Each structure stands twice: as structure tokens, then as C-alpha cells.
Simulated assay, not measured.
Amino acid sequence: MNTAPSDARSPQLGGEVWNVPGCRIVSLGHYQPARVLTNRDLEGMVETSDEWIRSRVGIETRRIAAPDETVDAMAAHAAEKALAGSGLIAADIDLVVVASCTALDRSPNMAARVAARLGLGAPAVLDINVACSGFAHALAVADHAIRAGSATHAIVIGADKLSAFTDWTDRTTCVLVGDGAGAAVVSAAPAAGIGPVTWGSVPEQSDVVRIEATPGSASPGRFSQEGQTVYRWATTRLPEITRRVCERAGLTPEDLAAVVFHQANLRIIEPLARKLGAVNAVVAKDVVESGNTSAASIPLALSKLVERGEVEPGAPILLFGFGGGLAYAGVIIRCP
């Protein structure tokens, strides 16, 4: 197993040094359900149109999980693909972190179920619920654990089944959602391939995106949001925060080879990329074909970009999640 020595001096992404072991993403994987739900399909379900959906959110299609297709099953499919590309075996993985806001059960958690599905040895298993920014939070937790010496190889997953929490008669929300999972294998390394995380929240507006159950009801709750509030916050506040992510990694927006924002809405992603000033970057737009997949959206879009060869190995990529709870987290990685 490749473990960096505890006194290694690893170059930060922009050339500075950390007096800690490094950490990097070594491989990626993703999974989407077989069923494709198009805008034309939705026209027969609610009062909407293909033109209305495209003009407001930019989505054309989305994938919807089967009723018996669980969050942990999707997560395990993505993780299995990432593990296969890592050169590691199941016994090497000593930490599993799953980001999700749509787990139905309190216990066991999704990470434990994924570990069992993959036949892992005895990893630490953690679930993180920060909704749409969950993967960036989970990646930071794994990075911290590895650089602190508490783990050597981790699988980090974002997986959500928003369709199970969707009111399919509400045209403002049902046109947005999709299901899927994305995963990364993260390992100790002599050089830092994951930069410092910048994260935070706006607690007083934590309920503008929510899945809330009604006390006494058998329903698990329904996804709802105050879309205009989220749009204004994302397009006005987040450009400054994303620039701060670059500064902490010793880079400028012009240095970025790619930008992967949470795939919430094309009308948020495109202005945010322009205001950031990432003029040389490929901007992930997986939302067009996958919809909003919550915690899965960043690793899903990232895995597709890398699989298609759109970013050179070693190039800097900004990952930035935002949304549910009005929480956010951003980090710059080196492309595996």
C-alpha cells in the first residue's frame, strides 16, 4: 500500500508546501439508472413544456431509478467502477464516506451497506448529509482523515434518489430531479492533489431547500425549494466564495482547466462560471442530460468529463457544491 511518510513536505496545488502527507483522487466512477425521462414525457404528466423547462433550467433529460433500486445499490455500482480503475483491491480500502440526503433508513447507514456490497474488509463507514454540497464535504473529510494518518485509501461517494421524494404533480420541482451516483477513490500521495476546502452555510436560510416529513405522516417528505431565493444567492454570493477557493489553493481562476459546479440549473452554472472568470476552463453541464441529482451531481459530472478525456491528467479542477441548507463547499483537485 502506498502510504506517504508522516514528515513528507508536499507541494500545495499552487506551489506552496504543507508539512503533512499529500492526498489525491486516483480514479472515478459513476452510475445512472436505465430509465430516461424526457421533457416530452413530463408534458404528459404535468402542465409544462419542453421549451419552458429548457428556458428556465436547461434540462433536457434525466434518469429515474426503479422503485426497488436503492441509494446504496446505485452508490455501490459507482464505487465498484472507481475501485476497478484504481489498481487497488477491496482489502486496501479503510474508509468509506457516502454523501446522500435521500437514505430511507436511520441504520445501518449507506456507507456500511456499500462496504458490504463491495466485500470490503473493516473500513470506517460514515454518511454525510449536506444535500447538494455533500460530495465536496465528504471529499474534504476523507482528505483530512488521510492526511492526519487515520486512513490510507478511501472511497468517497455522492448518491441520491430524489425521485422518491418528488411530488410528480408539482411542475416547479418534478422537472428538476434525477437519480444517480458518482464515486472517487482517494489515496495518500507524496504530492497534494486535493487543495484546502472552503466551506460554510447561511443558517438563517437553511430551509429554502428542503425535504421535510410531516409529523405523524407515513410519507418520507417531499422535495421543495424557494427557487428564486436560491438563484439570487448563488449568482450573487458564490462568485466571491469560489474565487476564495482558488486563492487558498494558490491558483487564479484563469489557471483552472475545468469547473464542476453542483448541477442544479444551467441558468446558475453559466453565470457563475462567467463571474468567476474561469475563461480557460471546461464547464461541466451534465445537468442538461442528468437533471439535478443532488449529492451525486458533482462526482457524476466529474467522472464523465474525465472518462471523455476532456481534462488532462494533473490539470486543476474546481469542484463546488451548494444548495440544501444553503450550505456550500469548494475544493480544487488535480485531475486523475
Rank of each mutant, 00 (worst) to 15 (best):
I317V: 14
V141M: 15
A218N: 07
G15M: 10
V57W: 12
H137M: 13
G158H: 05
P271I: 14
R243M: 05
A154I: 03
L326P: 01
N280D: 12
S303H: 02
D94I: 06
A82H: 05
G149L: 06
A329V: 01
T38L: 06
L162G: 11
R56I: 09
V98A: 04
V71Q: 02
S219P: 07
V114N: 03
L139P: 05
G85V: 00
A90F: 09
D160K: 07
A115N: 04
A75D: 07
A115G: 01
G321M: 04
A124I: 00
G216W: 14
V130F: 14
A34C: 14
T236A: 15
E69L: 08
I268N: 04
T198Q: 11
A34T: 14
D68S: 13
E16C: 11
A73V: 09
G193P: 02
A78E: 13
G314N: 04
G180K: 03
A234V: 02
H30R: 03
L305Y: 13
A116E: 15
F261T: 03
T61Y: 06
A4L: 12
E60A: 11
S206F: 11
A151L: 12
R243F: 12
P316A: 04
Y328A: 09
I89K: 00
H262I: 00
D170V: 00
V97D: 11
A184T: 02
A189E: 05
A103F: 08
A124H: 00
G291M: 08
T242N: 05
V202A: 13
T198R: 06
N19G: 15
A140T: 09
G221R: 08
T48V: 01
A34H: 14
T198H: 13
A140H: 11
A154P: 00
V331N: 07
K285E: 15
V202R: 14
A192F: 08
T70G: 12
W52T: 06
W168P: 06
A151N: 13
D127K: 00
A124R: 06
P313D: 01
L300Y: 05
E247T: 00
R35I: 02
N280A: 09
L13A: 02
V208Q: 07
T61S: 08
V288Q: 15
I317T: 05
G216P: 10
I155E: 15
G121N: 12
I268K: 04
R40G: 03
E60L: 06
A111Q: 04
T3F: 11
L266H: 09
W233A: 09
S6N: 11
V282I: 04
H144W: 12
G158P: 07
R237T: 02
I333W: 10
P215I: 00
